[in-house]
C-alpha cells in the first residue's frame, strides 16, 4: 500500500513538473503576441509607463483609428489581399496542370526534366532575384502588381507536392474515361481536380501564407509606396513613427491576425502542407 501511495505522488510530481515546463515555454512563445495586443489598445501615455500594465487602464481604439485614417494602412492591406489571392489562384492552376502532366503523361525526358526542376530547389532565391529584377526593369514592370506576382506563380515545391498526391491516384479512372471518349482536359477538370481537393486546399493555404509574409521580393520590386504590401508598410511605419509603439503594435497586429484566424480554422491543412515528402522515409 505504502509503495503504491509513493508511486502516485511520484506520478503527480512528474505531471506537475511536465506541465510547468510546457506552460513556461508557452508563455515565452506567446509573450510578444500578448504584449503586442495589450499595447495596441493603450493610450500613448500608458504605453511607456513603468511598471508596465498588461491590461490597458483606459482601453482605446485610437491606435487602430489612426492606423487606418491618419496613416494610409488600408491601401497596403488591399494590396496584400489582392496579391495573395491572385497568386494563390494562378499558382494552384498552373502547378496542378503541370503536376498532372508529370504524373500521368509519358513523354520523352519527363523524369530528367523533373529532376532538373527539383535540383533548383537548392538554389537560394536571391540568385534568381537579381537577373529577374533586371528583366522586370527592362519590361517596365517595376512597381506593378504583375511584377510582384508573376515570378512566384510557378513553384517547383507545389508541382512536386501535387505530383506526389497524383501518383497515389490509380490510372484506372483515367483509362476508363479515355475509353469512354473523354478528352484530357475534360478528364482533368471533372475527374482529377475533384480528387485533388485536399491537396489543392493545403497548397492554396500554404501559398497564401507565403505570399502574405513575403518580404524580400516586394522590397526589391515595389519602390513606390502605392505598391507596398503590409510588411513593407510596417517597415515604413517603423521608420516614420518609431517611438509611437501603440501605433506600430496595432500595425503588427493587423498584419498577423488574418493568418492566425486562417490557421485556427485550417490547422489540419497547415500541418499537411508542411510534410512535403518530409518524414516519409
Amino acid at each position: 500500500m505504502k509503495k503504491n501511495l509513493l508511486r502516485q505522488w511520484q506520478k503527480r510530481g512528474t505531471v506537475l513538473s511536465l506541465h510547468s515546463v510546457l506552460f513556461v515555454a508557452l508563455f515565452i512563445m506567446c509573450l510578444p503576441f500578448l504584449w503586442m495586443l495589450s499595447t495596441s489598445f493603450k493610450t500613448s501615455s500608458e504605453v511607456l509607463k513603468f511598471p508596465p500594465t498588461w491590461i490597458p487602464h483606459d482601453f482605446t481604439f485610437e491606435n487602430y483609428v489612426e492606423l487606418f485614417k491618419a496613416i494610409d494602412f488600408i491601401h497596403p492591406f488591399y494590396n496584400s489581399v489582392i496579391i495573395a489571392l491572385v497568386s494563390v489562384i494562378l499558382s494552384v492552376i498552373v502547378c496542378s496542370l503541370a503536376a498532372y502532366a508529370f504524373a500521368k503523361f509519358n513523354f520523352k525526358g519527363r523524369d530528367k526534366l523533373f529532376m532538373v526542376l527539383l535540383g533548383t530547389m537548392m538554389v537560394p532565391g536571391v540568385v534568381m532575384q537579381i537577373p529577374t529584377f533586371l528583366l522586370m526593369k527592362a519590361l517596365g514592370l517595376i512597381n506593378s502588381y504583375t511584377g510582384i506576382i508573376l515570378p512566384g506563380i510557378a513553384s517547383v515545391g507545389m508541382i512536386f507536392f501535387f505530383r506526389q498526391f497524383l501518383s497515389t491516384i490509380s490510372n484506372d479512372y483515367i483509362e476508363a474515361a479515355r475509353i469512354d471518349g473523354a478528352g484530357e482536359i475534360r478528364i482533368f477538370w471533372s475527374i482529377i481536380l475533384p480528387m485533388m481537393r485536399p491537396a489543392l486546399v493545403a497548397q492554396g493555404i500554404f501559398a497564401f501564407t507565403a505570399s502574405w509574409n513575403s518580404f524580400m521580393w516586394p522590397l526589391i520590386i515595389a519602390t513606390d509606396d502605392r505598391f507596398y504590401t503590409l510588411p513593407l508598410a510596417l517597415t515604413q511605419l517603423d521608420g516614420q513613427h518609431a517611438s509611437n509603439y501603440g501605433l506600430s503594435m496595432s500595425g503588427a497586429i493587423v498584419v498577423i491576425i488574418p493568418l492566425v484566424i486562417l490557421f485556427m480554422f485550417t490547422q489540419k491543412y497547415f500541418l499537411n502542407s508542411m510534410n512535403i515528402g518530409g518524414v516519409k522515409e
Binding site: 515555454a25 508557452l26 512563445m29 506567446c30 510578444p32 503576441f33 504584449w35 503586442m36 501564407t209 502574405w212 509574409n213 518580404f215 503590409l230 510588411p231 510596417l234 517597415t235 517603423d238 506600430s248 503594435m249 500595425g251 503588427a252 497586429i253 498584419v255 498577423i256 493568418l259 492566425v260 490557421f263 485556427m264 490547422q267 497547415f270
Partner: peptide, 17 residues
Amino acid sequence: VGFYLPAISNTIAVALV
C-alpha cells in the same frame, strides 16, 4: 497551436515587437 504561432506570424511584424 501556441508553439506554432511564431512560425506563421510575419517576421517583420514580430521583429517589430
